[in-house]
Design a protein around this nucleic acid. Structure first.
Lengths: 143, 143
DNA sequence: CCGTATAGTGAAATTCACTTTCATTATCGG
DNA sequence: CCGATAATGAAAGTGAATTTCACTATACGG
């Protein structure tokens, strides 16, 4: 899984005539072994511990590259921070976001997706992407 | 309808010990007689035409009050601008957002809402709000 | 009405989260 | 190893949102 993503990214880099660098390797490792939803800041701080000389701009640019290469996706939960989540081949999921503790739970629902297409069709609208988020209190916080 | 919202806002203002001002009246009128999805900037510019002395900060603060009072809701479509939409009593709708021309179409779908609740239940999650947006190309732009 | 305590306003400054610039450094094909 | 080209990090720049502050307006309690 990690191996596969590294492979995809490596391919992307070389196909674009870009270069492999120590920073990109380090950032990719950190990203792949992290939480599924990291902001630039999160990842930057995590990296700083072992790589004090890495720059915020580099993390920022590298995450953009991850998104471009297809191994990551930008998401926003309306808290002002852009997050990057891992993309699994062919899979799509939506989110439950706990407004109390910030926990993010992923889910998939075929039927909802199908209904979305129907709605779009009825308006002659062509869906490119969609976003479905349910905000509320997670099981843990409800106890 | 407009009358009802003005009433609600008036009530909110007085219940909080706030004051009625010329600016708030003007901004409320402009908001109620506008597009359903206005950014602060949009409304500010619209207001400036007839009220050159009104400040951006006042529009910003007043829109926040509208949201607090329940007559408006903040929404974000990921273009970096916060928008405010009218809230109709008890009604909820989702959006189709055209990535080409920016058009916003509203829709409602009972079944999708029901499925969302089921998903949330299965995770022991209590939904407070949700957000469903379909991004793509609208019928007009597809022609 | 009038005075006054309190809230509101507008201009400008600040914050926040990126995003870009630029001088310097690193990569890599030949 | 060279040289062309890309990458990096620090710092500056952006754009929208938010706050500050001196001044003004509102609305009770006489």
């Amino acid at each position: 899984m990690k191996r596969a993503k590294k492979q995809i990214f490596r391919q992307f880099i070389s196909s674009k005539g870009l270069k492999t660098t120590r920073q990109r390797d380090v950032i990719l490792d950190a990203f792949l072994s992290s939480d599924r939803h990291m902001s630039i800041e999160d990842l930057y701080l995590k990296l700083r511990v072992k790589n004090p000389r890495i720059g915020y701009a580099t993390v920022y640019r590298t995450l953009k590259l991850f998104a471009e290469s297809g191994i990551a996706r930008e998401i926003q939960f309306g808290d002002g921070q852009t997050r990057y989540e891992h993309v699994a081949e062919g899979e799509h999921h939506d989110h439950l976001v706990c407004t109390r503790c910030g926990a993010i739970i992923e889910f998939e629902n075929e039927t909802i997706e199908k209904l979305q297409s129907e709605v779009a069709d009825s308006y002659g609208f062509l869906i490119e992407t969609h976003k479905l988020e349910l905000y509320g209190i997670c099981a843990k916080c409800r106890k």
